[in-house]
Computed example of a mutant assay.
Amino acid sequence: MKVSGKVAVVTGAGSGIGAAIARRLVADGARVVLSDLDEVGMGEVIAGIESQAPGAAVAVRADASSAADIADVIARAEERFGPVDLYFANAGIGAGDGLEQDDAVWDLVIDVNLRGHIRAAQLLVPGWVERGEGYFVSTASAAGLLTQIGSAPYAVTKHAAVGFAEWLSVTYGDQGVRVSCLCPMGVNTKLLTDDAALSTTAAKAVTSAGAVLEPADVADAVLAAMDEERFLILPHAEVLEMYRHKGSDYDRWIRGMRRFQKVLQGE
């Protein structure tokens, strides 16, 4: 799908991958609503966009864990630009190591990393089916195809995000709804660099597994995949080979991950 002339919503757009996708969408002729809790970050992104394409983007402060906020962002996009054609469920959070997280932590990670995708799709997909066109891009992670050493909530919700994207494509793909699922490894974002976002073990696992890409490189990969209407977006090509190894011998893969975990923990 070509994005020129389309209306897009990008969550988690105050920095990182979301900000890079928003910039790239505008550069390619789309009109974009950015959403995030980070108003300062969004303001900086909007200022940069305004210098190149005045009026092409607006920012809406919103919590990706809130059903009401998601509905408000979509409604405000429709009021400003018209029906939403493209939705980027990009907001994501991590959590600490082990099983010590309480229900409140699990609920928040599930709400942001999974339910935020589901709630947006519930609002948008019926209209897309009626119009015969729409595009849903889910930001998951290589952790959703492999796993995340250290952070159980992150690993579990990213697997679930991949599963929901697959289901969405299978169920509505023949009715004009296009779906892509982004599964990068390390990207130079706050999720990776902020000590509070992922545990030390989880962050070390990511940076040890492959190159850390810049958000703009990931945005390029996303738009290229959308142009081809390709489901799986792998900015780190080696993830596909890792995934194949996992599927070919699950027990061997688990043993290998245990060994990797011990190395990361200095054992």
Rank of each mutant, 00 (worst) to 15 (best):
R255Q: 04
D111G: 08
S248C: 08
I118N: 00
G82Y: 06
V105T: 14
S51Y: 01
H236Y: 12
L114N: 04
S35V: 11
R119P: 03
V218W: 03
E79W: 01
Y154G: 09
V73S: 13
T139S: 14
K262V: 07
D227A: 15
A8M: 03
F81W: 01
Q122W: 08
G98D: 08
R131C: 03
T207E: 01
L99H: 01
A95V: 06
E133A: 14
A211W: 02
E79G: 01
M1S: 11
I46S: 11
T200N: 05
L34K: 03
D69V: 13
A56I: 05
N113L: 12
K158P: 10
D97I: 01
V33M: 15
G5F: 02
D102T: 12
A56D: 04
A77R: 03
W253N: 12
A221L: 08
R31L: 07
D36H: 09
G96R: 04
G94W: 04
T207R: 12
V206T: 15
P184I: 15
D102W: 03
D72N: 06
E78F: 04
A91K: 00
A225V: 04
A20L: 11
V218Y: 07
V206A: 02
L240H: 11
Q265G: 15
G256V: 07
T207P: 02
L234G: 02
G134V: 00
I110D: 05
R115A: 04
S65E: 03
E39A: 14
Q261H: 11
G55A: 10
I21Q: 15
T139L: 15
S169F: 00
E241L: 05
A77M: 05
I93L: 05
V9K: 08
D36C: 11
G266Q: 07
Q175E: 13
A27S: 14
T147W: 10
A155S: 15
G92S: 05
V40K: 00
V3A: 01
E166Y: 00
I118Y: 01
A59C: 12
V212M: 09
D85W: 09
G5L: 10
L37R: 10
A155V: 11
D38G: 13
L34Q: 03
P126E: 03
G210Y: 04
L123K: 15
W253Q: 11
V206C: 08
I46D: 14
L34P: 12
A19S: 12
A8H: 02
A20H: 03
E79A: 07
A75L: 10
I17Y: 06
A142G: 11
L145C: 10
